[in-house]
């Protein structure tokens, strides 16, 4: 089982300098992605889920500082790699698709040109014609019907759904082993969402690639993910298989999140359930458990000390003082 680990993040800490103080975006996050699996990272905005992904690609902004931790891809440490090596990795080993397809493509270049450049950056011997053809072929396999025409257009002539397909095509051109999907469907309407998810699943089946799927939408998690990591305030709250998380959520935060998802079968008169309080202020984190300010079960110890990671099942862990080893809950 261990050889199947493609990506291993451990103890990652990332902070940002900002005018209002140091923003502690990621505080000791650890997770793994295995070959061929889809790992979902779930959390509210500001939970640090996207930031850790950007760190993997070496695409953090200048104001960010990686304080500590390690990121291993196929056993190789990524943090601190020289930029040249990172350039080689990006696109060919690890790919990424972004949340907003409307602004993810260079507006002054044709789609086809962008795609062929991607190919020729990593395979310089490929001729322009061949690279272009490969690009068009990829567009076709993404379900874009008039692929030739699409390749000759600029991104401004395409709809949001099509742009996202183009992005996915571009990121898969070099057949990366790991695809990071940062909320790729959030900006799209539901029918397109479904198509995109299906597309990603097909690609995964075809090539055996792994996906790190970042989202705040539990419906998508249930649809495509194999395992899930729940994040809040830059910490990992809980981690386990999809079944564990949905049917036996151990952490109060996970439970609250699941409760908040509107159900088809709930009565219309019931008010939507929310989690009380405001998301945590990353410049001013609580001393103890990061969820302590909003947790209904919060106790004195929770406020004072950060809870350790406890195992509550087979490959199922959570970080909460109220849990004992083995799963039974205190209080």
């Amino acid at each position: 089982m261990e050889n199947d680990v493609l990506l291993s993040v451990s103890g990652l800490r990332i902070s940002f300098r900002s005018p209002s103080g140091t923003v502690r975006a990621v505080n000791g996050v650890s997770y793994e992605v295995r070959r061929g699996e889809v790992m979902g990272i779930v959390g509210e905005s500001g939970s640090g889920k996207s930031v850790s992904a950007y760190a993997l690609m070496g695409l953090l902004p200048r104001t960010a500082r990686i304080e500590s931790g390690s990121v291993r891809f196929e056993g190789r440490e990524l943090l601190g790699l020289p930029e040249r090596e990172m350039e080689n990795l990006r696109g060919s080993e690890i790919g990424m698709i972004f949340q907003d397809p409307m602004s993810s493509l260079d507006p002054v270049f044709r789609i086809g040109d962008i795609l062929s450049e991607v190919i020729r950056s990593h395979e310089p011997r490929v001729k322009k014609k061949e690279a272009w053809a490969r690009g068009v072929e990829m567009l076709r396999s993404m379900g874009i019907r008039d692929a030739e025409n699409a390749a000759r257009s600029y991104q401004s002539s395409l709809s949001g759904g099509m742009r996202q397909r183009v992005m996915i095509a571009a990121s898969l051109l070099l057949r990366p082993k790991l695809l990071i999907a940062d909320e790729p469907t959030t900006a799209l309407d539901v029918t397109i969402q479904d198509q995109i998810i299906r597309l990603l699943r097909e690609e995964k089946e075809k090539s055996g690639m792994s996906i790190l799927f970042i989202t705040h939408n539990f419906g998508i998690v249930a649809d495509i993910c194999d395992r899930v990591t729940v994040m809040y305030g830059g910490h990992v709250m809980e981690s386990g298989t999809v079944n564990d998380i949905f049917y036996q959520p151990a952490h109060p935060y996970t439970r609250a999140l699941l409760r908040a998802v509107p159900r088809v079968d709930s009565s219309r008169r019931e008010p939507l359930k929310t989690i009380e309080g405001q998301p945590v202020d990353a410049t001013n984190l609580p001393a103890g458990c990061v969820f302590s300010t909003r947790c209904v079960h919060c106790g004195g110890l929770c406020r004072r000390e950060q809870p350790p990671v406890r195992t509550v099942g087979h490959e199922h862990t959570a970080s909460c003082w109220l849990l004992t080893e083995g799963g039974a809950e205190n209080g």
Binding site: D106, E117, S121, H122, M167, A170
Partner: peptide, 21 residues
Amino acid sequence: KQYVTAMRSLGLRNRSVVYRH
């Protein structure tokens, strides 16, 4: 802008991203 990060993530060389795109 976002597309600069996106182009980099696709594996385009930094030099090309800056001077060309």
